[in-house]
Amino acid sequence: MYEKYRYLPSGDNGIIIEIGSKISEEINGKVRGLTLCIENEKPEGVLEIIPTYTSILIIYDPVIVSYYDLLKKLKEIEKRMKEITLPAPEVVHIPTCYGGEYGMDLEYVAEYNELRPEEVIKIHSERQYLVYMLGFTPGFPYLGGMSKKIATPRLESPREKILGGSVGIAGNQTGIYPIDSPGGWRIIGRTPLNFFDPSKNPPVLLKAGQYIKFDPIDKEEYELIKKQVERKEYTVKKSRLKRGDFNE
């Protein structure tokens, strides 16, 4: 983390606030904190706030506020941020059916790591993963914190279509495909939850700064939840991150 946050111009209508120079839960926590503070104060002229791994991009309307005036305002908000305590991050529970037709690469991931498939499921589902940021495709979460014990290289040639909701592993990372897309991740399971719905506000299920936890479910539960999601009757389970729950 930098002692002094860096304020960098991104064109004549954008400012990047850089908080640190490496990917860590601590730095991303500060990103989340400052993002919340800016959202709450909503300085005049600010149009868009995009939090990422270690920084925040702010897009503003220069007709309403000048670069130097906004810079001043943001630095004041940064000062005040240090005085408030943030609520513990939310944990979003992702019911996930592992293996079989939903996770065709589970066996491979197990074999590659010299584990049994049940062990892969246990290792994958016992952790809580930080959503560092959303990007790439609408609602795609960049997750951190997967155990190295189940790390597996990507497919040599990507599949043409991975169904939305698929849970995969690529190298040291785990992730969820929010919508149908081509991809080279090893697919170990699938969730019936809908991660991107343009008709909803917000249109995505996850937010940067939240944690997610995969809850293993069987095929029957998968079908049941899928129907509830389709009828918009399913309530996503959320809890608060407890102290000491952070990954190493």
Binding site: S10, G11, E18, I50, T52, I56, L57, M133, G135, F136
Partner: peptide
């Protein structure tokens, strides 16, 4: 480390030639 991309941002990847990000650019 991936960060936000504004309209008109000029990226320079390893090959050293500019790519200008336009209306349909990805967010990061």
């Amino acid at each position: 480390i991936s960060n936000g991309i504004n309209f008109g941002a000029i990226q320079i990847p390893g090959h050293g030639c500019p790519i200008i990000m336009m209306a349909d650019r990805q967010t990061t």
